[in-house]
Design a protein around this nucleic acid. Structure first.
Lengths: 152, 152
DNA sequence: TCTCATGCAACTTTATATGTGACATAACTC
DNA sequence: GAGTTATGTCACATATAAAGTTGCATGAGA
C-alpha cells in the first residue's frame, strides 16, 4: 500500500520555517522538500485555514508561521490535513448482513480503534516546539558542519 | 487512501469454513465474498504455506481448515498475508541527511511504532476460535432466522 | 505596468489493491 | 485413457488515491 507522507512533509516544512523568520515562497520550500510548489500550497492550505500559518501574495510574499509552536501538536497538524485515514487496513464492508462478517468487523474494529486512539493520543502529546528543540539537539551534536540543515 | 481489506476478507472466509467441515471450492467462497475465485486463491496461498489450510485439486477438491482454531490468532493470519503495511501514513524519506527530517521521522516513528505494536498485540490476543464463538453468539440472538449465515 | 507570489482547477503519473481471462496441472470418475 | 473439476499461476484490466505538473487568474509590491 502506498503510504501517505503529507504529515511527514508538512512537519518538515514547518520546522524549517521555525529556523528563520522571513516569509518562505512555495518554491523555496518545494526545493527543500524536493517536490513541487503546488504540492506545498496544497498541504499548507489546511494549516492556513486553521490559522497556523499565513500566506501573502506578491513581492516579498510567501508563507509565515502564525502560531505558538508550543501550542500546536502533531495531532493538530494532522487534523489540519483533513484527518486522512490512519490505518492501511479496513473492513471489507461497513454494515454487512452476514453475521460472520459482523463478528469479524467487531473484532477488527476493536483493535483498529484502539490503535488509532493511541496514535492520535501520542501525536497530541508532541508539539512543534518539542520537535524544533529535538532538531536543535541534533544540530548541536553534529560538530563537523555549519548551520545548514540539509546536506551531509 | 484505499484500504487493504485482505485481512477482513480472509477472516470472513476462515470463519465460514469453520461452520461446516467439507472442502470449499474457491468459487463457493468467492460467491460468499462477492468476489472472484482467483482472489480467494491469492489470499489463501499464504495461509496454506503456513499450514493453516490445505488445498486439493480435482473432484471433491477445494479448501479445508488444517489448524486448531484456538491456536491461530488474527496476528498469525495477518502474518500469513505477508504482513502488509498497517499504517496509512509513513515518513517521506527513510534515512534523510536533513536533520529536520530526522527529528520529524524520529517523532513520527515513535508514535507510529507504538500504534503498530499495540495493534499487533491486540490481533495476537484474538484467536479464530474466539471469533467463531462470537459468531455463534450473534447467531443465537437472532431468533427469527435459520442457520444461514448470510442474508437479512 | 511589470514582476512575483499565491489560489485554484484540470490533467498526468505512479503505486497498489482488486478483478478477470487464459491456460497448465493435478486428481477424481467413467 | 478421456473427460471433468478443481487449484496454480501468469498476464492484463480496472479503480482509487497520492503525488507531480501545467496553465491561468488574482492580488501585492516595485
Amino acid at each position: 500500500m502506498r503510504r501517505d507522507s503529507r504529515l511527514s512533509g508538512v512537519l518538515h516544512i514547518l520546522l524549517h520555517m521555525a529556523q528563520q523568520p522571513g516569509p518562505f515562497t512555495s518554491e523555496t520550500l518545494a526545493k527543500a522538500m524536493d517536490t513541487n510548489p503546488v504540492v506545498i500550497r496544497r498541504i499548507m492550505a489546511g494549516l492556513r485555514e486553521l490559522g497556523y500559518v499565513r500566506s501573502e501574495k506578491g513581492h516579498g510574499g510567501g508563507w509565515t508561521l502564525a502560531c505558538d509552536l508550543s501550542k500546536v501538536t502533531l495531532r493538530d497538524v494532522y487534523t489540519a490535513l483533513g484527518s486522512p485515514a490512519l490505518l492501511a487496513m479496513g473492513n471489507r464492508t461497513k454494515a454487512p448482513g452476514c453475521l460472520v462478517e459482523q463478528a469479524v468487523n467487531a473484532a477488527l474494529d476493536q483493535a483498529f480503534g484502539e490503535a488509532e486512539a493511541l496514535l492520535l493520543s501520542r501525536l497530541g502529546k508532541v508539539t512543534l516546539a518539542m520537535l524544533a528543540e529535538e532538531f536543535r539537539k541534533r544540530l548541536g551534536s553534529r560538530k563537523h558542519q555549519g548551520l545548514r540543515a540539509h546536506g551531509a
